[in-house]
Design a binder for these strands. Structure first.
Lengths: 194, 194
DNA sequence: CGCTTGGCAATACGATCGTATAGTATCCAA
DNA sequence: TTGGATACTATACGATCGTATTGCCAAGCG
């Protein structure tokens, strides 16, 4: 919310500040309205990621293309304490959990602690490329949110995945993989305590 | 910087606001001092990740344990436009690039565009778990930055890597992997334009 | 002893912010 | 026609913020 005062919003909209105040009730009212708008717009698009064959990386890429401003807003709101967008993170994590469970039912049982942990971390990693968008722009020299550039990050994510898996399946990563498997044993059986 | 006024900082330090102003010159002076302090503290620790055998996930985990407050500060500063911490993102991306190049010299050549893109995305993914820390706390029910909880996210990251790689090596992900390999061909040969 | 220097506090000033209130114009139903 | 609801502006109030100013006081030094 910082850096966007009611007066700025009103000036951008071409009306007075009092009208904005009158229409939304308060500053929080503006944010709630924005959250609801973006949430609704993104939900319909995101549903395709669950029951479709679309991968998580491509899902983000298609979101970029569909609503660049909405994605930028989400990236910004995720680091504020916006309660509406907090549910969007949870929804993303739930989508990841469903995807993990659908892909490996015995490895990521529904409701298990391991599925919950992995899904949350996965959502944080993918949304992290959004939140740190400004740094990626500076590092890459191009804007991944610009039209036609959406593939850069999603492809890189997939490539990192494959590279990391190769590393973990090598001799160097064998002990890491073994230690990880032990921890997973306990978590897989444990139901998540809500 | 939002949410931490000079008066708050002075009250927390037990001194007057005027002294803080006098000592650091301005509000930006405080941030620069904090950036320099954290940067120096974290650099020595991070160097182990490059030439050591330590993985990136374990590197983050050990950073958690070494300086919880420093990590929290970085997570906060990464989403502000702090110029000092911006170099920290670049340093993390450079570390990732070095690690990628050391692990697969022919796959990720030094200075190649593909290495640069992958390293930046990798840094964003890993640092994303820091920046979105508040959401992870809410989702997981525990604080990954709390002492003794550092392993949760790092293990989950590794597990997601293995799961993703299994997905990409399966029949379903075969075409994705194939399309990815084509794009990589061009990027590997191309030198990065600075 | 007198003077300067630096740590430190207290206060004030201007800017910005969210919000409240009063006032004006428009429009639609009774 | 009229009266109230609605869209909209203008202005003001209180709070908070960064910053500048002033002054006190102890330490060091000739």
């Amino acid at each position: 919310m910082h850096g966007a005062s009611i007066r700025d919003i009103a000036a951008r909209a071409g009306v007075s500040a009092g009208l904005v105040q009158h229409h939304f009730g308060s500053k929080d009212g503006i944010r709630e309205a924005c959250d609801a708008h973006v949430l609704e717009a993104i939900t319909a698009h995101a549903q395709r990621g669950i029951d479709g064959e679309i991968t998580s990386g491509d899902l983000l890429a298609s979101m970029y293309a569909a609503s660049e401003r909405g994605v930028r807003y989400i990236a910004r709101a995720l680091v504020d304490d916006s309660p509406g967008v907090a549910t969007l993170f949870d929804r993303g994590a739930e989508m990841a959990a469903q995807w993990l469970n659908k892909s490996w039912p015995e490895r990521f049982p529904a409701g298990a602690a391991v599925t919950h942990e992995r899904a949350g971390t996965m959502a944080a990693m993918h949304l992290g490329t959004l939140v740190l968008h400004a740094h990626l722009v500076r590092w890459l020299g191009v804007d991944p949110l610009a039209p036609g550039q959406a593939h850069v990050v999603s492809e890189a994510m997939l490539d990192v995945y494959t590279a990391m898996s190769d590393y973990l399946s090598s001799e160097t990563g064998a002990n890491i993989r073994r230690a990880l498997a032990e921890h997973r044993e306990n978590l897989t059986k444990k139901r998540r305590t809500p």
